[in-house]
């Protein structure tokens, strides 16, 4: 009888453990998405210039739930030539568009700071919309040791 119980126990463990493991894997792992269509939408199809945008993010973020971030755009803030918006895109977040900030000539300086969530090690893209329908873009890699929780209870 002892052997029978063990077999039943094993079978029980197998059927209960399997879906749990599968569920944990499927939800924990957020694959990097193709953010190109989103970037296209943000720029309206205009090809952004590389450079001119400085992203300050830690190289290694210990906690993906709150990652300090600062964006500086090297651009004057005059009524003729200014930064009108800054978009932050995180390709592995379930909703890649993190935030959009609207600036203007009254900002004086094209710089913002905030704290973002990052669901895993990934590339963070910042798009700065300039007056005259021009765009600048920069990307930075961040290593996230503990991703922003998606499925854990607390």
């Amino acid at each position: 009888m002892a052997g029978d119980a063990q077999v039943r126990r094993r079978a029980f463990l197998a059927i209960t453990a399997l879906p749990l493991a599968a569920r944990a894997q499927s939800q924990r792992f957020q694959p990097a998405q193709d953010v190109a269509p989103l970037l296209q939408k943000l720029t309206g199809g205009v090809a952004p210039e590389r450079g001119g945008v400085e992203i300050e993010l830690p190289q290694i973020a210990e906690n993906g739930n709150s990652v300090p971030m600062r964006v500086k755009v090297a651009n004057p803030m005059t009524p003729q030539d200014h930064v009108s918006a800054i978009h932050i895109v995180a390709e592995r977040n379930p909703r890649p568009l993190v935030a959009t900030f609207h600036l203007g000539p009254q900002s004086g300086r094209a710089e913002i700071a905030t704290r973002v969530r990052l669901a895993g090690t990934q590339k963070v893209t910042v798009i700065a919309a300039l007056s005259g329908n021009r765009f600048r873009m920069a990307q930075v890699d961040v290593l996230v040791t503990s991703a922003a929780c998606l499925d854990e209870s607390m």
Partner: peptide
């Protein structure tokens, strides 16, 4: 200044910007 935020912002959102 204005902003549109999403779920990618950390809890208790913090935003700093410049103004003249």
């Amino acid at each position: 200044f204005s902003a549109e935020l999403g779920s990618g912002m950390a809890a208790n959102p913090y935003i700093a910007f410049y103004v003249v």
